[in-house]
Amino acid sequence: MVAGTIAAVVLAGATGFVGYALGAAVGLVVGLVVGGVAGAVFGWAVATARPYDFSAGIGIFRYVVDLTWSLPNTLIGAVYLTGNLIGGNRVERHYSLHSGCVQLTRGVFPRINGVSYLTTIGTVIAGVAPAVHAHEHGHVLQARIFGPFYVPLVLVNYALATVIPFWWLYHDHSRYPIRKFGAYFMDGVYPHVWNEAWCYRVYGPPR
């Protein structure tokens, strides 16, 4: 409960500070409301699903990093978590326990060509598919490593890979032919951005 309360206060305080810096009193109020709601939801998840193992050094380290260096990612993940819960998704406590992340029972995208895609934002993973859990945890690790630079680096790479398809030179065209507009993104852009290429190579699944 204490860890959840601290997380909630930190997130609310961070958004309140940013809001005040951007919009004085009005910004402060907006920031506190957004951060307060998302922080309360994330704090509740931390307290009830127990994603951080506080009996081990790695659990404490993850918690501290997520509320300091990687705080922007944690905040975005908290907003993502809040939206998912409002939409009827639920926290999967079995896979969340001591995993270093909050896992949700359903993904946010329908199956594409028979494949279930999980989506990770910050410390929140939407969807359950054990074969790709290591891959998704890889994204959580990336966020912790790159901290506030993680999301901008990913977005810039997505934009570049979309406009300048450098990946076309080494893409496996025999296994994943690019013949449709959707395939350009799902089989071309998506697996070749740096964070996805990293996780596919290190954690799989084979692609």
Rank of each mutant, 00 (worst) to 15 (best):
R90P: 00
W44G: 12
L85N: 07
S99N: 09
S174K: 12
I145Q: 01
V156K: 06
W69S: 00
A161F: 07
H94F: 11
H173W: 10
F166Q: 02
G4A: 09
R50C: 03
Y20T: 08
V108Q: 10
Y203C: 11
I76A: 13
T5Y: 06
V202R: 11
D172P: 15
P165H: 00
A131I: 09
P148V: 11
V79I: 15
L141C: 04
L104P: 02
G204P: 03
R207A: 08
A129P: 01
L22T: 06
A38H: 05
A21T: 12
R90L: 13
E92D: 15
T162C: 11
H139Y: 03
A8G: 04
T5D: 03
E92K: 00
V10K: 07
G182Y: 11
Q142T: 12
R175S: 13
L11T: 05
M1Y: 02
R106A: 00
G13F: 05
A12M: 15
A3W: 10
H139F: 03
L81G: 00
G100W: 02
A38T: 14
L11K: 08
F54S: 08
V124H: 05
A49V: 04
Y52P: 04
V132W: 00
P206D: 13
G27P: 08
R201T: 15
V189W: 01
T82G: 03
A159K: 09
A49C: 10
H173R: 13
G57R: 13
P152D: 13
L118Y: 03
L141E: 05
K180F: 06
G36S: 07
Y184P: 01
T68H: 02
L160W: 12
L153Y: 02
S96V: 12
L28W: 10
G27D: 07
H173F: 10
N84M: 15
A49R: 10
V34M: 13
P130Q: 08
V79H: 07
W168T: 06
R207Y: 09
G107K: 03
F185I: 14
L81T: 04
A78C: 07
T105P: 00
A134G: 11
V163C: 03
H173Y: 09
V140K: 08
T162N: 02
S99P: 04
G13H: 07
V79L: 15
G88V: 13
P152G: 09
A7W: 08
N113A: 14
